[in-house]
Design a protein around this nucleic acid. Structure first.
Length: 443
RNA sequence: CGGGGUAUAGCGCAGCCUGGUAGCGCAUCUGGUUUGGGACCAGAGGGUCGCAAGUUCGAAUCUUGCUGCCCCGACCA
């Protein structure tokens, strides 16, 4: 992408409404624009990152056997009356009336709807286990939205729903999602720690919140330091096999949020030098809630014995739009964002120091074409802004690598390649630059 | 939902107390000079001062009401 033809409204000054670093950086980097309290437009750069996060979630959901679909944002109140949540949910639910005076709502979650779909089609235990998910915009009318996309009213969420005949089988489904979550966050450059959690209005018995440690986290968390070095399940993980050992490994150490922490237990089970008391951002939550919805809504299947049983369900959320904030909170410096490669909006920022110059132009064009041809996403700064402004913008938007093509280096045939994360710079020929980037960006 | 702020050009702000021609920096546009870490000179454009009512000869400024947004708390992916 040529910067001269792109839409990247960089802000030099910080809008005063932005309190925390991720919000500030997202506004300054031209990723989002607030349209109303807690409601954002996703500008091109932010949208690219959002899509990359979605893609990782989709790949890891598929790996764990979940099947993607799409449910609407608007739902009929009738479904929610069946489960009893229409009255229970409170003012956080945005209620709408259509022209026929029918009660509608902008979905804050989809348990009722997925249960309705399930009961309409699935009749036999032979069709289980089943895990259906979608990635869709949700709305929760928070009294006080804040922190940019970390706590908006409108947010993009992945929610998966599992259906099993028995509790034991439901726990196996739960474990698949649990392990999939560990991999999902890791691929985004995050260490997410599964913590004991309150089950909240969704209800249930077995539940974990996946928490990323960050200074600006919304809640206080208590956990064992060894979580930070724990190996993430690899790409060869067999999701059809027994995942219990992995789950057991990841839940054997103490980890709890402030809502449910038992400080005596924390201190008893974690040696003093291993205790972490920090702030954390919740980036996902897993629930097993049994027959909470299947029972009242009549989602039953025939068993091998010929009886009918309500299915055991679980739901599994990932805050997709919130993850942008979480990733930035976890990965930035004074100059701006530092994107992990897998979610970076572009891989490389190519800076032409002197557009229109006989030396820099052809080299940039050649490099740009060859990188793009090899699958590397390049943001090519072909504008005629001053050098300092270009460097500052590039640092701000945080692409993993910067390539600087200027007369100074090119008179010796060299480009400067800078690693955004480490700040290391090396002077390389065009061919060596391509080789270097291909090696570094092979995922 | 309780408490506290705030609203003036795209962004950041001054002006308000003490009513009288709407300003500054950045950004934008034009011309020129620059060119390796947020350049310089000259010129230009851009504002129903959040909305409504009131007081007044006259309101960005005083009064009342409303709305948006932000912060602290209680609540949530």
């Amino acid at each position: 992408m040529r910067l001269s033809r792109y839409f990247l409204p960089i802000l030099k000054e910080t809008p005063k409404e932005a309190e925390i670093v991720s919000h500030r950086l997202m506004l300054r980097a031209g990723m989002i624009r607030q349209q109303s309290a807690g409601i954002y437009s996703w500008l091109p750069l932010g949208h690219r990152v959002l899509r990359k996060i979605e893609r990782i979630v989709e790949e890891e959901q598929a790996r764990a056997g979940a099947i993607q679909m799409l449910m609407p944002t608007l739902q009929s109140a009738d479904l929610w009356r069946e489960s009893g949540r229409y009255d229970a949910y409170g003012k956080e639910m945005l209620r709408i009336t259509d022209r026929h005076e029918r009660d509608m709502l902008y979905g804050p979650t989809n348990e009722e709807m997925i249960t309705d779909i399930f009961r309409s089609y699935v009749r036999s235990y032979k069709d289980l286990p089943l895990n259906l998910y979608h990635i869709q915009w949700k709305f929760r009318d928070e009294v006080r939205p804040r922190f940019g996309v970390m706590r908006g009213r409108e947010f993009l969420m992945k929610d998966a729903y599992s259906f099993d005949l028995t509790q034991d089988q439901a726990v196996e489904s739960y474990n698949r999602m649990f392990v999939s979550y560990l991999r999902t966050y890791k691929r985004m450059g995050l260490t997410a720690i599964p913590m004991k959690a309150e089950t909240g209005p969704i209800g249930g018995d077995l539940s974990h919140e996946f928490i990323v440690l960050a200074e600006t986290g919304e809640s206080e968390v208590y956990c064992h330091r060894d979580f930070l070095d724990k190996a993430t399940p690899g790409i060869d993980t067999d999701f059809d096999g027994d995942l219990t050992p992995i789950v057991r490994d990841w839940t054997s150490l103490y980890a709890a949020t402030e809502d449910v922490v038992d400080k005596a237990e924390f201190e008893a089970s974690v040696p003093e030098d291993k205790r972490i008391v920090a702030r954390g951002i919740e980036v996902g939550q897993t629930f097993y809630f049994g027959t909470k919805y299947s029972e009242p809504m009549g989602a039953k299947v025939a068993t091998a014995e010929g009886t009918e049983e309500p299915v055991h369900m679980g739901s599994y959320g990932i805050g997709v739009s919130r993850l942008l904030g979480a990733i930035i909170e976890a990965s930035h410096d004074d100059a701006g964002i530092i994107w992990p490669i897998e979610v970076a909006p572009f891989h490389v920022g190519l800076i032409n120091m002197r557009p229109g110059d006989d030396l820099t132009d052809p080299v940039c064009e050649d490099l740009y074409a060859r990188l793009e041809a090899s699958g590397i996403e390049v943001l090519y700064d072909d504008t005629s802004k001053s050098a300092g402004a270009k460097f500052a913008s590039m640092d701000l938007i945080g692409l993993p690598f910067q390539v600087v093509a200027g007369p100074r280096g090119l008179k010796d045939g060299l480009l400067e390649v800078k690693d955004r994360k480490t700040g290391e710079k090396e002077m390389l020929t065009v061919d060596a630059t391509i080789a270097r980037l291909q090696a570094a960006l092979t995922l």
